[in-house]
């Protein structure tokens, strides 16, 4: 069994081993600390000054990463908590993303900004957000998110191959969960990964009652809801988990589902889910029987106390209730 944090760590080791152009920067990423979530453990010991613990300067760290990329290297920048990526907004949006196009020809900026995101850990309002939505629709910028299905090494290779800056979200609740292997989720569900999208299905169900689309950090809560829906409500769901959040890849199989529901942990308003629905509505218009259900976290700051935080973020019961209601 491999935990997601270990899997990411191995992927970074392999990447830096095979590609001497890759540099990694971030706060407290060096050994013996190895990053706030231990994802960079061992890298500084092995790769020396290609790995740098930085001052608390998210904006400049992102800018330095872009400068390395501009000069022909590849850079991975770790933002300790995704909330802090707001401090790097200018460098990411106005420099790294724009520079790929604003000089009239494609300028490669191979830069991956890793953002540990999400709540349900009691870290409170400034250490728990899922800020993906703030970066959707920035020309030249792609958004990816770690999932327990996707090979992280392949995702890093894919992001660098784009030659454009990417934000890579890693939901913190995933770090201690295991990577799924061998196409098996549990006794009920099987999965397959095709390109950017992981698809989780019940054996033998070709036309599910509902297709649920989520980002990586929502996977386990969605699976919990799917299990309840099946066993308690006799509703069969399948799950689609795109590792690329924007631009959205082709999501397979939706025409065969009776309903579509998009679930995310970003706060309500201007959401990733709304963007997913915008892409899907024209495609599915003739087969949709009702509007796509959009579930997001509340229009609220994220409280620290666990009982309050649970109320704000999306939980399995809410997913279940929303799907039952939509299909009733």
């Amino acid at each position: 069994m491999t935990r997601v944090s270990e899997h990411l760590n191995h992927a970074l080791h392999d990447l830096m081993e095979t590609d001497p152009d890759v540099h990694l920067l971030g706060e407290d990423v060096s050994d013996p600390y190895g990053g706030a979530f231990k994802v960079t453990r061992g890298l500084s010991t092995r790769f020396g000054d290609r790995v740098r613990s930085t001052p608390l300067s998210e904006g400049a760290i992102a800018g330095v990463g872009a400068g390395l990329a501009l000069a022909g290297r590849k850079a991975i920048v770790e933002i300790m908590f995704a909330d802090f990526v707001a401090l790097a907004f200018d460098q990411i949006v106005n420099f790294a993303a724009k520079s790929t196009a604003m000089y009239g020809r494609p300028v490669p900026i191979p830069l991956v900004v890793r953002c540990p995101s999400g709540g349900n850990r009691g870290y409170g309002p400034t250490h728990s957000q899922s800020p993906q939505k703030h970066f959707i629709g920035v020309p030249g910028l792609s958004l990816f998110e770690m999932t327990p299905f996707h090979n992280a090494g392949e995702l890093f290779a894919r992001m660098f191959a784009l030659g454009r800056p990417c934000l890579f979200f890693e939901d913190k609740v995933l770090y201690t969960r295991r990577m799924y292997e061998g196409g098996v989720v549990d006794d009920l569900f099987r999965y397959e990964v095709a390109g950017d999208v992981a698809r989780v299905r019940l054996d033998g169900v070709a036309e599910p009652d509902c297709a649920i689309v989520v980002h990586g950090g929502m996977v386990h809560r969605a699976l919990d809801a799917m299990r309840l829906l099946l066993l308690e409500d006799d509703i069969a769901c399948e799950l689609l988990v795109p590792a690329r959040l924007h631009p959205l890849p082709e999501l397979p199989g939706l025409e065969r589902a009776r309903h579509v529901c998009v679930v995310e942990d970003g706060s309500e308003g201007g959401t990733w889910g709304a963007e997913v629905a915008r892409v899907l509505h024209p495609r599915l218009w003739s087969s949709l029987r009702r509007p796509i259900t959009l579930l997001s976290a509340a229009d609220s700051v994220i409280p620290a106390a666990p009982h309050l935080e649970r109320e704000v973020l999306v939980q399995p019961a809410r997913i279940r209730d929303a799907i039952v209601e939509a299909l009733s």
Binding site: G59, G63, V64, G65, G67, A71, D90, Q91, N94, S99
Partner: peptide
């Protein structure tokens, strides 16, 4: 030669370029 229009934005980038050089 690279110019860009947001004040101060270039210095972190220049630091990254200098790190590569």
């Amino acid at each position: 030669f690279l110019s860009t229009g947001v004040q101060g934005e270039s210095l972190p980038v220049a630091t990254g370029v200098a790190l590569a050089l």
